[in-house]
Simulated assay, not measured.
Amino acid sequence: MTFPDVTPESQPTDPSELSHRAAAIDRSAAVSDEDRLEDLVVQLHEAPDVQQTVDRFLSFAVEFLTPDHATIALKRRTRLWSAAATDDASSAALAAQLSLGQGPCVTAMSTGLSVLVPDTGQEIRWPEWTQVITPRGRSIFSIPLTAAGTTIGALNLTSERPHIFDAADIRAPRVATYGAVAIAAAQERESLLEAVEASKCIGQAIGVLRERFSIDGDRAFDILRRYSQDRNKKLRQVAKHLLDTGQLPD
């Protein structure tokens, strides 16, 4: 008896056809990633403040890069702080690293270069840090968040298993770039809003002093500035104290 050929047409045996289909799948995955990154840009742009920008970026990074845990650290001048984390234990671990002043995240922020820890149980670059990390046998990938040539923080990915991350993987640094630009823009917007509010507050305080002491604006501003310098307080803090209490600070 002769059986018909039932090889499905969807299962090509020609090597060139298989190659074409594999390439098509790769292109489809790439398009999917592009779409998701475009959605990320919109989500981050619509975030109302810096913290929500950071939170949305962390959520996307976890979904897109699939680490077991993740954190974001930010820095401004010499101040470093834990800005977001997937869980309390990760937040505490990052805070401990920042307090010690050593570890992959600190190094990534200070050098502007990605730092890979294949196995925390074998790590020797940061002796004090390796003494406090638990549990051992994890892998960590810290990617700097750099915008306009300035490193403003780091994205830290952690796996419960060793040797999970690949320093040659371009997806994590690419995602970090999107996040860094959005966070930097949100910080700039927030700083501008704070400057506007501070200016408004100082202007109102000058008006109070002018009316109270029958002086001109320059003289009123000099009074605020002197109190600011003598008491080591920011000018807007002196102005706000006056508006809130009706008195200049003691």
Rank of each mutant, 00 (worst) to 15 (best):
R161V: 08
L94M: 04
F3K: 15
L116H: 11
A239S: 04
A85I: 05
Q131S: 15
E194A: 14
G203A: 09
V181A: 10
Q11H: 09
Q237K: 11
A92T: 10
E9F: 00
V31A: 09
A47P: 02
S114L: 14
C105E: 08
A176L: 04
D39G: 13
E194Q: 15
R136A: 14
I170Y: 11
V208N: 02
D250V: 12
R174T: 09
L100I: 04
L58K: 05
Q97M: 06
V50Q: 03
T150V: 12
A220D: 06
E194R: 15
I183A: 06
V181I: 12
D166L: 09
R219M: 11
D49Y: 07
G203I: 01
D14L: 02
D33T: 06
T151G: 07
Q229N: 11
A147V: 04
V208L: 06
R161T: 15
P67K: 09
A220E: 02
R136E: 11
S99L: 08
R36S: 00
V106K: 02
I140D: 04
E194I: 10
Q229W: 10
T120M: 07
F165G: 07
D222C: 08
W126M: 05
R210C: 00
A89Y: 08
A239C: 00
L116F: 10
N232P: 04
R79V: 11
F165I: 07
E46C: 05
L193A: 13
A61I: 02
D169E: 08
H20S: 14
V106M: 01
A70E: 08
G203R: 09
L74A: 03
C105T: 13
I72N: 00
L209M: 03
A83V: 03
F3T: 15
T53W: 04
R76S: 13
T53H: 06
Q237Y: 11
R77D: 05
L65G: 08
Q187N: 14
V196E: 12
P162A: 04
L248W: 09
L157Q: 01
S90L: 01
Q122R: 12
F165N: 08
P118I: 01
Q52N: 10
M1G: 15
E34C: 05
S59R: 13
D169K: 02
A92D: 15
T111W: 10
Q52E: 12
R236W: 12
V132D: 04
I183W: 03
I206N: 06
G179S: 07
V117D: 02
A168D: 13
A205Y: 01
S191M: 14
A83H: 07
A30H: 03
P4V: 04
G112K: 07
A29D: 06
